[in-house]
Design a protein around this nucleic acid. Structure first.
Lengths: 200, 200
DNA sequence: CGTGTTTTGTATTTTAAAATACAAAATGGA
DNA sequence: TCCATTTTGTATTTTAAAATACAAAACACG
């Protein structure tokens, strides 16, 4: 009962996430958020309590869909372990490339939330969300590495965990490079170099 | 003539840089800056004009000393090309390790400034300073790679420029990993993996 | 000694953004 | 239909931090 909602919650979270990504947490006002999401302030506060809570929920959703996409790739049985890693890099490069096209060169919400203190200090949940994401990402990549050792596509002298750390760090590195304006073709070479070092 | 200054300008810049690193730009108030630097607000504004200007000068100084340290290592004639790169990774790991010990796990001012929009949007100079840093860093690393090819310590089938991009991205990746709480010993393994892939 | 000049300390003003208050609107169910 | 309940729109309040104003202090120089 009561008056029905006129907006889609997930759409607001996506629009918010984009704003936060492009302008940063501190530099996006609630007014910009309202405008971007096409929602009035009272609706925002009524639904999401505060700017902090809205950010947290946006981050949660962003990470959830990002992780799903990576999981789909990294557990694709039709691919060898090495091919899975290659496809993961493809995904990252595609994301960066299309972000580039859409004008907003900015940025990776996950890496930015990690590196920029701010809300992450006040809000332990931000830390927790990011930690959990990284744990899962590391596990997924480590599994792909392990299966790459079995199918012979990857070196068998490396620990899956260490290799996974290396891959994950490479991805972050690429995101930073991309934010610095490095062209996608260069990013591709960097990704290839990283991957080559793990090949059998 | 006139009343002499009671504080050291460089010391204020260093203290400010630390605050900005630990708390982020938006979340450090001028009051915190004054307290950290041991200087009254009027002195700050009198000398540095505004919070924005103070940040820019802090960043400039921070980058300048960082680059000097890297340059010293990367142009050390006594070392082979590969050893120079290894020493560079050592420097990074040492920085991260000692930051960890001092409690403030946060953070790399350079990567954070890149990834977190904010002042960087308003201030083209921030962009310029970071671009310039990266150019120089890339050149220094590329030179080290080139000399590593000559002295036989590094693979001779890779373009110095691409290899340099790969190294620089690896460094950023390690910084992100470190910020996420990864232990220094794991960071070391990651660095070794990255370096191994370039060895002759 | 003073006098001009710069720095320093304190108190105040400005500002901008977050958050709230409250009436009007819109529905489902009795 | 009308009432309880929730959302929506607008206007206002709260807040915190950046920036300024101005008098007192400290020195160099004549």
């Amino acid at each position: 009962m009561g008056r029905p909602r006129e907006f889609d919650e997930a759409a607001v979270l996506d629009a918010s996430a984009k704003q936060f990504r492009v302008r940063g947490f501190a530099d996006t006002s609630t007014e910009q958020l309202c405008e971007a999401a096409g929602v009035k302030r009272s609706s925002l506060y009524n639904t999401f309590i505060s700017k902090d809570e809205l950010f947290i929920r946006s981050l949660e959703r962003h990470i959830s869909v990002a992780l799903d996409a990576q999981k789909a790739i990294l557990t694709e049985n039709a691919l060898s372990g090495c091919e899975r890693l290659a496809a993961l890099f493809d995904l990252i490069l595609e994301e960066e490339g299309s972000a580039r096209k859409k004008g907003h060169a900015a940025g990776c919400m996950i890496v930015a939330s990690r590196m920029a203190p701010g809300i992450g200090d006040r809000e332990p949940r931000v830390q927790r969300i990011l930690d959990r994401f990284m744990d899962r990402q590391l596990s997924l990549v480590a599994e792909a590495v392990a299966s790459g050792r079995l199918d012979g596509s990857l070196r068998n002298d490396l620990s899956p965990r260490d290799a996974a750390l290396m891959i994950v760090s490479a991805i972050s590195g690429i995101r930073v490079l991309s934010q610095s304006g490095t062209g996608v073709s260069s990013l591709r070479k960097v990704a290839d170099l990283h991957l080559d070092s793990l090949r059998a």
